[in-house]
């Protein structure tokens, strides 16, 4: 029996999670709770129900199947998460897919087969597979197994991780991974705890250890207006980056956006909006220049 992990989605033809055409495997479960997270459905490692009222056709099948938990009105099905056992019976009867059970266990074989369907595009474009989440490194055996087979098949592998995991989890995957995307979120440990649920000491230590290995690391900083974009934050990031080893090749700053709002509603989580308008290109460019000047690293 092949090793399994809870998968929320396998997205094909992504162009933003590493070079070339990529298939991104999203795994469910994360030790952090970053308030700006784009994938709230991946926080809890256990399966959960997603609600997509825009797909609801108002047939009421879910309320008949599980009346204690749901009622139906013109806004679609109501749902009380606290009294749901996530048995999935409602999703079974919802042919319109307005209620979905998210986070089915998939085997490494199954995921590998899906990845390989685009192998010719990876070869042509220098692409490959990217493991993401949630925190994909909660499942080092699963990720390692698929990555090992990908490497044998000539498919390049990348990992997107927050690194808030035991070092052994990271170490186990190093031989098979060509590129690590490592998140740095907030330099100050206490502020980090406030906005993500944990301080950043283990994260920084993990990245630092990895940065002395023979690999390639891209540091990613999600720039959250008013949270981590002040002068003291930039200096703080620079101080951390200066302590990194040679495997850290560049720093990528990510613009904040609102694209995830509907996913919060689907996952019944509270959405935090951190800004109304997107940051300007000039603002991002200035921050890139500042950070590059202080660290000598390439900032994109």
């Amino acid at each position: 029996m092949s090793v399994t992990a809870p998968v929320t989605n396998i997205a094909r033809c992504s162009l933003h999670d590493g070079p070339g055409v990529r298939t991104v495997v999203y795994l469910k479960g994360c030790p952090l709770r970053c308030q700006w997270c784009h994938n709230p459905e991946t926080w809890d490692a256990r399966p959960q129900m997603l609600l997509l009222p825009q797909k609801c056709i108002g047939c009421g099948a879910c309320t008949e199947r599980c009346p204690a938990h749901r009622t139906l009105d013109e806004n679609g099905p109501h749902y009380r998460r606290e009294s749901c056992s996530v048995c999935g019976a409602c999703a079974d009867v919802c042919t319109a897919q307005a209620i979905q059970r998210c986070g089915e266990e998939k085997t490494a074989d199954e995921v590998f087969d899906t990845i390989m369907r685009d192998a010719h595009y990876y070869r042509a474009t220098g692409g490959g597979v990217t493991f993401s989440g949630g925190e994909c490194l909660l499942y080092p055996t699963f990720v390692g197994e698929i990555a090992r087979r990908c490497r044998e098949a000539g498919v390049s592998c990348a990992i997107e991780s927050a690194f808030a995991v035991p070092w052994e989890h990271i170490e186990a995957t190093i031989p098979y991974i060509d590129l690590f995307f490592a998140d740095l979120k907030i330099p100050d440990p206490e502020k980090h705890r406030t906005y993500t649920g944990q301080d950043n000491q283990r994260i920084i230590e993990n990245i630092r250890r990895l940065s002395h290995k023979d690999t390639h690391i891209t540091i990613r900083i999600p720039v959250i207006p008013g949270i981590n974009d002040a002068e003291e934050d930039i200096c703080g990031f620079a101080e951390i980056l200066k302590t990194m080893g040679p495997a850290v090749k560049e720093v990528e700053l990510l613009k904040y956006n609102h694209l995830a709002e509907s996913k919060y509603h689907a996952a019944q989580e509270t959405y935090h909006a951190f800004a109304d308008a997107p940051q300007s290109d000039e603002y991002m460019q200035a921050m890139q220049n500042r950070l590059a000047g202080m660290t000598g690293l390439t900032c994109i």
């Binding site: 033809c13 162009l15 070339g20 055409v21 010719h120 595009y121 070869r123 042509a124 474009t125 692409g127």
Partner: peptide
């Protein structure tokens, strides 16, 4: 930014 990748996607699917 994306045109070079799109070109290669195009050639790869044509090869198929």
């Amino acid at each position: 930014r994306n045109l070079p990748v799109l070109t290669e996607i195009f050639f790869a699917s044509s090869a198929c």
